[in-house]
Nucleic acid binder design. Structure first.
Length: 883
RNA sequence: GCUCGGUUAGCUCAGUUGGUUAGAGUGCUUCCUUGACAUGGAAGAGGUCAGAGGUUCGAAUCCUCUAUCGAGCACCA
């Protein structure tokens, strides 16, 4: 097998993408001998194209799926897309606009046809991109939130809710987007600070010369005022509660009411109450039985409440009304005022609270259960800090406005019996899962379906079970029983309420079980300055370009490495570059091992012989423990960094370098011995890395095993007591210390890295003699020493440099004359280092409380350290004096 | 306003239950094309762990307050 010197990601990746798909590596069937582990993908919008958020979200899920699969679970990761309601309709509407048309020109039926056609053309883009990313999804199970199965689930759910009396229709104050022309739920409104004005208006009190001044940001709604409210505790207004006001411009009489919701500190402490256009006012109106007068209509224009302003936009009406108030002397003053204004989360248009006939879902019971599930840890959050916001939100939830006045989506499955003129009859609405053909009450065949569609999140909320055909077959559904509840839900926090909380509600409602036991919440990907990526800022990093430039494994590793649960990550080309280099490092380490292996027959089990073998197996074993644990609690970042450190620092920088002695040996058995360890550890390591960097790992796996089977079909390494070598680990630390000290001298004294040198080691600590006796070959090899002698009472010769390790003095005779000044400076520096260390220990030990109260072992440890530093300093000072 | 999270090297971040001379990557400096890798190797410089109190023999780690950044929620007449 030819391996190129530089890892060629593109060549390798394409091959494995096809392999995994063609071999159905990730397809899953019910297998009751195995436990299932399921993830349902957060379905990206059909209109979408892969961005960094997807890349992060999906490579994390892929890592988890691959890890669990290698652990022996029957894993299933279900792919799919979301129809994306308003967002998608907006996209197609924009396309129409380019042709100079509106959806009304086409009509509902033709428009929906166009939507489907467009979906057909573009809908698979993002799925293809997920394939390129290497995602181990079961492609035969690809779902769409508006396909048959999901549609049936939606209808079944709606009917069950309806029959239980949880769904009702009514005219309520709702959030209305005048641009999208639809109602929105409370969480679909985003609040942004905006500069505006606060107008102070005089409201004359009837039968008196007095006025009550109100402050408002929305003077245009005053013509719909049906009261003025003050706080019952407000001394200023105590005597006027119950009195009547003559509404300026309108002349209508309204009452002054007392309500605790009014903040005495704000404005004048008197609030004009416009129930039809403000949530708080609406509440006040309900408490005081106030009349509700609509001022603004669904288009954002003034109603006919007052002829003068009829048909004006709310914005124009505001100017006109302020002008009129001013003219008639009612306006006292205008202040600049900054406040939060609700915006449509899909188009950014200012939300208009209006009265509107809508469908609502009562959520109180469901919310209680969903909240309790988290409180009982049946649904666990990673990180746990998201539990509180989640429960808090659920505990204070109001009914969910589920109807939307758009065309793209699940049409509400409610039918009305109508007469020949199309007017609704007195028969009750018909709610059936199957489309009814006649009215069950009167037999009439003239039926019309409700015009509204459901909130897109309604169908998303059922995703974890609708994908398993719950809509068609809710009971005795083997797949549902086997795969549900799923193992983990992976998402960013921005859809915790919109989606996650609702899935838990619906899962408990319809399946009487949570939809997933774990929720893994990752951060969002920001640019290198910490800013959110957005098209308008122009700081978007396209993952497809990164894949092209650095390789998909590099992209995945870079993301995984910074994906600490719950924390946002700043990412730049540097991260991808480092990850690409890492891939190359693994590639070349493998290439080196294979080159040496050649045609040799190597034992599958590691043949343990030397110190370094035991050391690396010990390290490898610890790595297994750490990585497994990290994957299990979704610390993918920890798993990544642990593997990076093990592979690069431990395996490559130390073990491979140490293995070169035996590799170069004439003795074939020796070579085979060290190769058995090298290959054993490398194979285990790429298994651990495979969930994160699947391409290169599968490629190497196939090369090493001369197999075509994917690495995900092998089993994840398991921690093994037989590889625990604590003594060898500390011996190796001694070797490493000596090597580092010698290298330091070499570097500081400008000894050529190519030169082989002589070194003499004076042993001060008898306990460490064995290390030199057994392992001096390592030191010679790594520190480039041709002649190494050691023993007790070895003295420094003239013209040698000194290095001090714990328990050793190392003398390095220099060619020619030693540069005295340089050596003095070097030793002085070292003395200072050790002195500062010594000072710390002295301070500790001179504290009687420390000696008395600290654990004995800790005191002993510090005493030993102090002794070490003292001996080092003595050696260094002596040498300095002799120079 | 309330709640939560962050603040550690120039930059990006680690730091498990309090006890290592506070670590890594990147950038910087010096040296090196040595037969896996220059997408590499070796060495080095660089940090009052945001600040102030407190608990403790001992605090980057625990507690309180402050500053600052961010998120969520509420209010915004």
């Amino acid at each position: 097998m030819e391996m190129e010197k530089v890892y060629d990601a593109k060549k390798v990746e394409e091959k494995w993408v096809n392999y995994w798909i063609n071999n159905k590596t990730f397809s899953s069937k019910i297998d009751k001998t195995k436990k299932s582990f399921t993830i349902v993908i957060p379905p990206p919008n059909v209109t979408g194209s892969l961005h960094m958020g997807h890349a992060l979200n999906d490579s994390l899920q892929d890592a988890i799926i691959r890890f669990k699969k290698m652990q022996g679970f029957n894993t299933l990761w279900v792919p799919g897309t979301d129809h994306g309601g308003i967002a998608t309709q907006n996209v197609v509407e924009k396309l129409l606009k380019k042709e100079g048309k509106t959806k009304y020109d086409l009509g509902r039926e033709k428009f929906i046809e166009k939507m489907w056609q467009w979906r057909q053309e573009t809908g698979d883009t993002i799925l293809d991109q997920l394939k390129k990313l290497g995602c181990g999804l079961d492609w035969d199970r690809t779902r769409f939130t508006m396909d048959e199965a999901c549609s049936k689930a939606v209808k079944r759910a709606f009917k069950q809710f309806y029959d239980k009396g949880l769904i009702y229709r009514g005219k309520r104050l709702v959030n209305w987007c005048p641009r999208c022309n639809t109602a929105l739920s409370d969480i679909e409104v985003e609040y942004h600070p905006e500069k505006g004005n606060l107008w102070y208006i005089k409201y004359p009190i009837k039968d008196s010369n007095e006025f009550l001044t109100v402050a408002t940001t929305r003077p245009e709604t005053m013509i719909g005022d049906t009261a003025v409210a003050v706080n019952p505790n407000d001394e200023r207004y105590k005597n006027i509660v119950g009195k009547t006001i003559i509404l300026p411009l309108v002349g209508r009489e309204i009452k002054i009411v007392a309500d605790y919701i009014v903040d005495m500190q704000f404005g004048t402490g008197a609030v004009k109450v416009t129930p039809a256009h403000d949530a708080v006012d609406y509440e006040i109106a309900r408490r005081h039985n106030l009349e509700i007068l609509e001022v603004i209509d669904a288009n954002g224009n003034m109603t006919g409440l007052m002829e003068k302003y009829k048909g004006m936009s709310a914005k124009d009406a505001r100017e006109q009304i302020v002008a009129d108030l001013q003219e008639q002397g009612y306006l006292i003053k205008t202040e600049d005022y900054s406040h939060s204004v609700g915006k449509c989360y899909r188009c950014g248009t200012t939300i208009e609270p209006i009265m509107s006939e809508q469908w609502f879902l009562k959520v109180e019971e469901m919310s209680k259960r969903a909240s309790q599930a988290a409180k009982d840890e049946k649904v666990k959050f990673y990180p746990a800090s998201w539990k509180k916001p989640y429960t808090l939100w659920l505990d204070n939830l109001r009914d969910w406005c589920i109807s939307r006045q758009i065309w793209w989506g699940h049409r509400i499955p409610v039918y009305y019996c109508v007469d020949e003129k199309g007017n609704k009859t007195n028969c009750p609405p018909i709610v059936e899962q199957e489309t009814p053909t006649k009215c069950p009450h009167c037999g009439n065949t003239h039926l019309v379906q409700d015009n509204d569609v459901l909130d897109t999140w309604f169908s998303s909320a059922m995703w974890p079970f609708s994908v398993f055909n719950w809509g068609e077959n809710p009971d005795n559904n083997e797949e549902l029983k086997y795969y549900y509840p799923t193992g983990v839900l992976v998402t960013g926090h921005e859809i915790l309420y919109l989606w996650v909380a609702r899935m838990v509600q619906m899962g408990l409602e319809f399946l009487n079980d949570i939809p997933f036991s774990d929720v893994f919440i990752h951060g969002i990907v920001r640019d290198k300055h910490g800013l959110k990526m957005s098209k308008s800022k122009g700081n978007v990093i396209n993952p497809l370009e990164i894949m092209d430039q650095f390789g998909t494994d590099a992209l995945r590793f870079a993301l995984a490495q910074s994906a600490a649960p719950g924390r946002d990550m700043q990412i730049s080309n540097d991260s991808f570059l480092a990850a690409r280099n890492f891939a190359n490092k693994i590639w070349n380490a493998s290439r080196f091992i294979l080159m040496n292996k050649g045609e040799l027959d190597i034992s599958d089990e590691p043949i343990v012989k030397e110190l370094s073998d035991k050391w690396i197996l010990n390290e490898y074993n610890q790595t297994i423990k750490a990585v497994t644990r990290a994957f299990e609690v979704y610390d993918i970042d920890v798993a990544s960094r642990t593997l990076y450190d093990f592979i690069w620092t431990k395996f490559c920088d130390w073990y491979i370098e140490l293995s070169k002695i035996r590799m170069n040996s004439e003795n074939v058995e020796e070579k085979k011995q060290v190769l058995s360890v090298l290959i054993y550890v490398l194979k285990g390591t790429i298994k651990m890395l495979a969930p994160i960097m699947p391409f290169i790992c599968d490629e190497l796996w196939s090369i090493f095993n001369n197999t075509t089977d994917s690495i995900v079909n092998s089993s994840f390494p398991v921690y093994d007591e037989k590889f625990v070598f604590a003594d060898e680990a500390s011996q190796m630390a001694v070797v490493q210390e000596i090597v580092s000290k010698i290298r330091n001298v070499r570097s500081e004294m400008n000894i050529s890295p190519a030169a082989f040198i002589t070194a003499k080691i004076n042993i001060l600590d008898d306990k460490k003699t064995s290390v030199l006796e057994n392992d001096s070959e390592y030191i010679k090899s790594l520190a480039k020493i041709k002649d190494l002698s050691f023993g007790k009472d070895i003295k420094r010769e003239k013209n040698s440099a000194l290095a001090v390790a714990t328990g050793f003095e190392i003398f390095i005779p220099l060619e020619g004359l030693i540069d005295l000044e340089k050596e003095k400076a070097r030793i002085n520096k070292e003395i200072n280092n050790v002195l500062s260390e010594q000072e710390k220990y002295n301070k500790k030990l001179s504290n009687p409380n420390f000696v008395a109260k600290a654990p004995e072992a800790e005191v002993a440890r510090i005493k030993q350290k102090l002794a070490d530093t003292e001996s080092k300093i003595a050696t260094l000072k002596e040498t300095l004096n002799n120079l």
